[in-house]
């Protein structure tokens, strides 16, 4: 079995960030790490490969991102992915989920895996769209927001739990090939030691430009679904009245508010 796991190096913002003139964020205030959801989706792929049914399979980690995104790929290789692919082109700067999915689709098509794993969403953009858009480009069967999965080898079908709102779960069956977007909590992602991360540098990691995956220079612009005009700092705590003072004073105010609202 062959697995492609699509991952993202996400940005988290310091509490005291500064915006640049042009509308972006000063990179000094940004920290990068492998998207939390992707750690679960990678684990799902690795676990399935190790579970006998998928044994001997290959796990390929793919990302769209700049040089720094290789950290995310190394984290995947350290945990057990066999190969990694990074695609980048300057036109992908600030790309939206549709553009990213278009590029991923070009890579996945070349890999022709049995299963594609994506995280439900990324912690920075939180669109929840890239995986499903990718399935759309590939015309691939998919289930979104998966919280459990089991594979039945004889019938080549997966039985998965699809997490719905309000504590409801829908169990569905899906044949291969398929794409799943994986929700947090589905498994316990393994730890990658620093030694493993260093050794992961020995594993194959290729970097492609757009033309390497068969896309032309304008592909990203054509696929993009939206354009960001500007980033703004939200009006903070609109309506939130700030409770100042020592913890004791805060606690006293809370008790007061609760008593007032509960009796009223």
């Amino acid at each position: 079995m062959k697995f492609v796991v699509c991952v993202k190096q996400v940005a988290s913002l310091d509490e005291e960030f500064e915006l640049l003139e042009g509308g972006g964020v000063d990179s000094d205030f940004v920290e990068w790490e492998l998207n939390e959801w992707d750690t679960f989706s990678l684990e799902a792929a690795l676990a399935l490969r190790e579970s006998g049914e998928g044994e001997g399979g290959e796990v390929v980690a793919v990302t769209v991102g700049e040089q720094e995104a290789e950290e995310a790929l190394l984290a995947c290789l350290a945990r057990g992915a066999d190969r990694a692919v990074r695609v980048w082109d300057e036109s992908l700067q600030g790309a939206d989920p549709l553009a990213v999915a278009r590029v991923l689709a070009a890579v996945v098509e070349r890999e022709s895996p049995d299963l594609v794993f994506c995280g439900v969403q990324s912690s920075d953009a939180v669109t929840g769209s890239t995986g499903t858009a990718l399935a759309g480009y590939l015309d691939m069967a998919r289930v979104a927001v998966v919280t459990a999965l089991s594979y039945d080898a004889p019938s080549s079908t997966l039985t998965v739990d699809r997490e719905l709102e309000s504590g409801l779960v829908e169990v569905v069956r899906i044949g291969l090939p398929a794409l799943l977007t994986i929700q947090t909590g589905i498994n316990e992602p393994r730890y990658a030691t620093l030694r493993a991360i260093k050794q992961a540098r020995e594993k194959p990691l290729v970097t492609y430009g757009l033309e390497d995956v068969g896309l032309d220079a304008g592909a990203v612009g054509v696929a993009a679904g939206a354009h960001t005009i500007e980033l703004q700092t939200p009006e903070r705590g609109a309506g939130a009245q700030l409770l100042d003072g020592s913890p004791a004073e805060v606690a006293a105010r809370i008790v007061e508010i609760v008593q007032e609202r509960m009796s009223g």
Partner: peptide, 21 residues
């Protein structure tokens, strides 16, 4: 045990935190 991932989830996340920050 660390290499085999047999560590307390809290320790795992602290190690990741130290690596990151």
């Amino acid at each position: 045990l660390v290499e085999e991932g047999e560590l307390d989830p809290n320790v795992q996340s602290v190690l990741q935190t130290i690596h990151k920050s």
